[in-house]
Simulated scan of single mutants.
Amino acid sequence: MKIELKNVTKKFGKEYALKEADLSLSPGKIYGLTGPNGSGKSTILKLITGLSFPDSGSVLIGGRPAARKETKNIAYLTELDMFYDPFRVKDMIHFYETQFSDFRINKAWDLLKDMKIDGDKKIGKLSK
């Protein structure tokens, strides 16, 4: 699916994260976003995943405006921990099962086994 940012501006307070940015990503390719801190890399990813919205311009996924329900085929792993600290690995698996209609719990258990991760281990004790 083609991903496009057209004339996108995003501000946080008085600071621009992006100013009139244009970007076009074609399907079937691997891209990397590089740049110094504050250059808009994380902002672009949040806009593409529908976690944030532009102040002006448009973000399109397959020609449709980016929104959480439109981006179910896009994964984004933030640098921030977004887990509940007291949760154990198996608690998170059950939580995700309730949140994503296409979540495959058997696949999750298989991955835990393959990666030798203890389902009783607290999320906060795992490395990223």
Results as ranks from 00 to 15, higher is better:
R64Y: 11
E15K: 12
M1T: 03
Y16S: 04
L112I: 08
S39D: 02
L77G: 02
L80E: 14
E15F: 12
V59S: 07
K11Y: 11
I44A: 05
A66G: 05
G32Y: 09
S58H: 07
K72C: 01
T34A: 14
F87C: 12
K2Y: 07
L111D: 01
S56K: 14
A21D: 06
A67C: 13
D102L: 12
L112E: 02
S101D: 14
A17V: 06
L18F: 11
K2P: 02
W109V: 01
F12S: 07
K69C: 12
F100E: 11
F83T: 02
L80I: 04
G40A: 08
D118F: 06
L45M: 14
R88L: 03
E79F: 10
R104I: 00
K72T: 09
I44F: 04
G35W: 13
L77M: 15
S42H: 09
K69P: 07
L60E: 04
V59W: 03
L60W: 05
P54Q: 11
S42K: 14
K125C: 08
T9K: 06
Y31R: 07
E97V: 00
A67L: 08
F12M: 09
I44E: 13
L111E: 00
I48L: 10
T9D: 06
L33M: 04
L18Q: 08
L60N: 02
L47G: 04
K14E: 12
D85T: 11
P36M: 13
A17E: 13
N106K: 13
D102M: 06
W109K: 12
F100K: 11
E4T: 02
F100I: 03
A21G: 05
T98D: 00
G32H: 10
A67N: 08
I74W: 07
A17W: 07
Y76E: 04
M115T: 05
G62Q: 10
D22T: 07
D102C: 00
T9H: 13
K14R: 14
S56A: 08
G57M: 02
G63K: 09
L45C: 10
D85P: 15
M1E: 13
I3R: 01
M92E: 00
L80Y: 08
L126M: 14
K11N: 11
K90F: 01
L45T: 03
